[in-house]
Amino acid sequence: MDVLILAGGLSHERDVSLRSGRRVAEILRDRGVKVQVQDVDTRLLGTLSSLADGVVWPLLHGSSGEDGSLQALLELAGVRYVGTRSKAARVAWVKPVAKAVYGREGVLTPDFVTLPQSLFREVGAEQVMDAIVARFGLPLAVKPARGGSALGVSLVTDRSQLSRAMVHCFAYGDNAMIETAVSGTEVAVSVIGTGTDATALPPVEIVCDGPYDYDARYNAGRVQYYTPARLETADAARVTEAALTVHRVMGLRDLSRVDMILDHEGRPQVLDVNIAPGMTETSLLPQAAVADPRDIGEIYEGIVRAALV
């Protein structure tokens, strides 16, 4: 079995992608799997044409790796690959659309509004921000409507912080999603498999000395992780069921990670779904895999073998 890992790309998350690719390659090689790691460049289609019986594992983060574009190219090339197919990836990539899909299934998500940068210029930024605060109150979470790794995300606890948060958000995209900031226990649940055969890895609890932003995620020291999460049995079951529901109704395949807040009433409030979660040493899915009764190498090899079917 040959595995071609695609890592790198040109998004803001290139460095994280390269680290993810190297780490997954190491673990698979320890299992005796033949692995090649390649960037996405002009050599790609030639490499794919020579990949007879192998599997591609795309580990690109950001737009080209998660918005369905790369998946569509792999489908055009007729190769087998790990992960969600292009159509479902396009839906999952746009946060407000994803919220609408899993929200129809009764999955709770914080109340939100999505607004383009152009509207702030046309109507007047201060008036729009006043309307946002009047409608949702404080605190607020401001984030790009598309994107990952918490790039462009801000927590706003005072009206005076909102303008800077919007500027920061629009540096990463033309559409902002502003949502009620729910308080509670921050949890990430990773899901392995497809459809009714999907299973959840142990939930990971995240305790951060401030916003769980890009710096906190990929630079050690600011975050404490608890795996499994320090939850009562019933709460653990609820967050697990929420993640499995999102994975199934979104039509996701092979692996995903669902980020949520377990609010003070014991209700999972889903924040985001990731079809290409980070796989670095500090990333959440690998931490959950280490806490699983199975060996992490067994889990990763199982992901690859499932893509052969």
Rank of each mutant, 00 (worst) to 15 (best):
D2T: 10
I5K: 02
D15Y: 01
S17F: 00
R22E: 14
I27H: 00
V33I: 14
K34R: 14
V35G: 02
V35H: 02
Q36N: 10
D41N: 15
G46T: 08
A52I: 01
G54L: 04
G54H: 04
L59P: 01
L59M: 15
L60N: 11
H61M: 07
G62V: 01
S64H: 14
S64Y: 15
E66S: 08
D67I: 00
S69P: 00
A72R: 14
A72G: 15
A72K: 13
Y81Q: 08
Y81I: 02
T84R: 06
K87Y: 07
R90S: 14
W93S: 03
V94A: 00
A100V: 10
A100K: 13
V101H: 06
L108P: 05
F112T: 05
V113P: 06
P116A: 04
L119C: 09
F120I: 03
A125H: 06
L138R: 12
P139K: 05
K143W: 09
A145P: 03
G148Y: 03
S149F: 01
L151P: 00
S154A: 14
S154N: 12
L155I: 15
T157P: 00
T157D: 14
D158P: 00
A165M: 11
M166R: 08
V167P: 00
C169K: 07
F170Q: 11
A171Y: 05
Y172T: 07
N175S: 12
T180E: 13
V182D: 10
S183L: 08
T185S: 11
T185N: 04
T185Y: 02
A188K: 01
A188S: 15
V189C: 12
V189W: 05
S190H: 10
G193Q: 13
G195C: 09
A200E: 11
P202L: 06
C208P: 10
C208M: 11
D213G: 09
D215P: 00
A216V: 06
R217T: 04
R222M: 08
V223Y: 07
Q224N: 10
P228M: 04
A236R: 15
R238L: 14
V239F: 07
E241S: 14
E241I: 02
M250C: 14
L252W: 07
R253S: 05
D254H: 15
L255W: 14
R257L: 07
V258C: 07
L262F: 12
L262D: 08
D263A: 09
H264K: 12
Q269D: 06
Q269C: 15
D272M: 04
N274C: 06
A276W: 00
E281H: 13
T282N: 06
S283M: 06
A288N: 06
A291G: 10
D292N: 13
G297Q: 06
A306M: 15
A307E: 07
